[in-house]
Write a protein that binds this DNA or RNA. Structure first.
Lengths: 341, 341
DNA sequence: TTGTATGCGTTATCAC
DNA sequence: GTGATAACGCATACAA
């Protein structure tokens, strides 16, 4: 008489167990209004514990909203990603909700609450490291998550991640400077806890080693991707007894900070010190001089992330594709042969 | 027996006339699910034609989403506004939906459709000139609209608008250059169809007139706010027989284009040609040299716009405040006394 | 009371 | 038929 191990978990069964009607369970599944918070929770819990899966390719409610979450909206970086996501979302008739959680738990809680009340169809997290409980929450709500530019190795489980070939980019930039004839090449690093920072640094090191150039720890200065740190690090490098003839900054913004450090010393970018950045933000092309940099396909990364969440929202089970889109060295006017050669 | 002119329009009456139950009308009013599209339209039409007003200060559904609409997301400009709106929205537990409609009617239609299906609580339009029928639609849907940086004089009716004191900013920048001793001052204009462009140009002219400096049409060059046009206009100005000793660009991005034009001629910004911009984007502080510019409180404009829509969404009838927030001249290193004085 | 909002079941319907 | 969704009304809760 025990029928606990029936193979099919149907909403009829859930409804009976929860003591509600079938349509009510259906409403919970589709995140619609007209369900009491308590009932909704009870049903969600049962759905989860019974491991309910949708039958066939039934009409999954058309996606209406995807969330795009940044830590901060303080960089031109962010707009590029937004453009990519908005572009795909717009075409699919889906709204893009942009948020900044500032790495605060209260802020995150507020966002999560809002996300829930408006029934978001998917979340794209940029660089941020959402706390595991937040991931768990989203899982419970059946909201798919995609990470752009993963901050850490494994966000927890099988979350799809979209990044760029940071190591290859660091390598290419450094090789470019080596080919120009530079031997003392400074490096301005990004935050060390970020995966992309470490990959860029390793690419820099790998290029130097391959060229047989000895590593000098003083040539590697810390930074945080923002302008000010580039200025500070650049100043430190230029004030060394044996200053570098070229500086590779792990972000365009830091490269512009280096520009300012160079200028303040009465030196000229390219003529006296070569500078290479990373990102290829729009202003790189319009800086004076135009910045040689490693192009990161930010818009394309946003597009791919959007396509991926929307696909997941449709119920298509993507097998967590950890994609890395190619970076590309863009040579402009800020890099030249070292002076006096 | 004729009771047509009963003073109170109640949803019971609407329900009877539409041939549906009272709860159904209530659902339409609150933008909830479980109403057939046809029914919803019929009821909306009746509500509108009978001029239905909510009784008392009944629980207006808490706002969940506001829309922020740009023409294009291709400028650092946009992030600043987004930051302001997101900040206020986030604090109020409201999501910010960012869209770019690219001035296309099909794109706008798609956005409007999505906006409707997810029941947006308010719209903030940036610079864009939404077509009158779109405004009419939003009115029908009872969605409040606020305009930031109004593109044109009157968006149609009594829509609240939040701008900046563009004329005063243009005046201040020009006066600053005059005080430094410049007499030939070039101007790189923005798109002439935009209100803010014309105000900045008029401010420039007013300052010159007040100082008794004759206007020279050749010193005013057209632009479109983007880098490239600044470069072109700057080049034209510097190639004049009697080139200006200072150039005031109506946007920071164009000012950077001017930087490049100056550099390409082997000249130096500030030492040879003073340059002043408009906006005070984050990169203005970090340009080489740091740019003297007119600060526009973009984040604050976004914040105010968000507060205003949310207030309107709550039913508080703001009497269309056409606010202009103050601009402020920020003197940095790109402006100096003319050479040889 | 009267007006309005919410939660949930009933009935019809649709896809397989 | 069976699983699931869509549209609407009933009963109720609650505010003025």
């Amino acid at each position: 008489m025990n029928t606990d191990d029936e193979p099919r978990v149907t909403i009829t069964a859930i409804a009976r167990e929860a003591g509600v009607s079938v349509p009510t369970v259906s409403r919970v599944l589709n995140g619609r209004s007209d369900v009491a918070p308590g009932t909704r929770e009870r049903v969600e819990e049962l759905l989860r514990s019974h491991g309910y899966r949708r039958r066939g390719s039934r009409t999954v409610r058309r996606a209406e909203l995807v969330d795009l979450v940044f830590n901060d909206l303080d960089s031109p970086w962010a707009v590029e990603i937004i453009r990519g996501v908005e572009d795909v979302g717009h075409a699919a008739g889906v709204g893009t909700v942009v948020s900044a959680i500032h790495s605060e738990s209260t802020s995150t809680r507020k966002w999560l609450q809002n996300l829930r009340s408006r029934a978001s169809d998917g979340v794209i997290v940029v660089t941020s490291h959402l706390a595991p409980p937040v991931h768990a929450q989203l899982r419970r709500l059946n909201v798919p998550v995609v990470v752009v530019d993963p901050a850490t190795g494994v966000p927890g489980t099988d979350v799809p991640a979209i990044g760029a070939t940071n190591w290859a980019g660091g390598l290419a930039a450094t090789e470019h400077l080596l080919e120009l004839g530079h031997r003392r090449i400074g490096f301005v690093a990004g935050p060390t806890h970020l995966l992309c920072s470490r990959a860029r640094l390793d690419g820099y090191r790998a290029a130097l080693e391959a060229a047989g150039v000895p590593l000098d720890d003083r040539l590697v200065q810390p930074g945080d991707f923002y302008h000010a740190s580039g200025f500070t690090a650049g100043s430190t490098l230029l004030d060394l007894d044996d200053p570098p003839t070229a500086i590779f900054a792990a972000s365009d913004q830091m490269a512009f900070g280096v520009y300012e450090a160079v200028r303040r010393r009465g030196l000229r970018v390219a003529d006296d010190v070569s500078v290479v950045g990373f990102d290829d933000l729009p202003e790189a092309r319009w800086a004076s001089p135009p910045l040689t940099t490693v192009r990161q396909p930010l818009v394309e990364m946003g597009r791919l992330a959007a396509r991926t969440v929307l696909r997941l929202a449709q119920g298509e089970e993507t097998e967590s594709p950890r994609v890395e889109l190619a970076t590309e060295l863009v040579v402009r006017d800020s890099s030249a042969r070292p002076a006096g050669r």
